[in-house]
Design a protein around this nucleic acid. Structure first.
Length: 202
DNA sequence: GAGGAGATCGTCT
DNA sequence: GACGATCTCCTCT
């Protein structure tokens, strides 16, 4: 895909000051930017999941505010990164006003710029491009996202990690049940771009 | 290609 | 002390 990208226009805080379901849908097609020294890695968001603060047993915020989930109770547009299964990091962005819990999990992105660096971070050949970022644990590894990025302001383009606008045409969107959880599995809160080869599972 | 089990550790009970 | 918003490898088809 060779659409012209516009990584200099960060998404504003207001974009995230809404219901996570709206934010999760609207994030599809947007850009995730990672600066590594002189290099800039760019990826397009193709799959997300919404996690609601209230009435969502599957969300980390369900059992109340703790040191770990502090960020998703805070102001909108900040990175919530957590460590899971002893191996992997997952990237979320906080939604709703300060004091209200809610967030969006990034499940898959499409590499656009810096594929060589992403492949190196994943310890995979560039030829397996479609396997670099098609999963929440994979995309954080490809973009070298760790606990150090927890609490980063994703609406600030001077940060080393942020989200950007793009002129990508508004994609068609499909909603399915969320993946990898055991609670509230009936809710269709997973959003993806149908037929995009970089989503985690069809 | 599908299905299953193990790895591995921070967080909360 | 149990479990988890996952991934990879191994086996079988």
């Amino acid at each position: 895909m060779t659409a012209r990208t516009h990584p200099d226009v960060a998404l504003p805080p207001e974009f995230f000051d809404r219901d996570p379901r709206r934010v999760a849908r609207d994030l599809l097609g947007k850009l995730l930017i990672r600066r590594q020294g002189r290099q800039t890695l760019i990826a397009r968001v193709v799959e997300t999941e919404a996690y609601l603060g209230k009435n969502d047993p599957a969300a980390h915020s369900a059992s109340g505010r703790t040191a770990r989930n502090e960020v998703i109770f805070g102001p909108p547009g900040f990175a919530y990164v957590y460590f899971i299964y002893g191996n992997h990091y997952c990237l979320n962005v906080s939604c709703l006003p300060d004091g209200e819990a809610g967030g969006v999990l990034f499940r898959a992105v499409e590499p656009i710029t810096g594929i060589t660096a992403m492949a190196k971070a994943r310890d995979l050949p560039e030829s397996s491009c479609h396997r670099l970022t098609n999963g929440p644990g994979k995309l954080t590894e490809a973009l070298s996202i760790t606990r150090a990025d927890n609490g980063v302001n994703l609406t600030d383009r001077t940060e080393s990690l942020y989200l950007a606008e793009d002129n990508f045409p508004r994609p068609r969107i499909a909603a399915t049940p969320r993946i990898g959880i055991s609670k509230a599995t009936a809710l269709k809160l997973r959003y993806l771009i149908p037929n995009n080869p970089f989503v985690s599972k069809p």
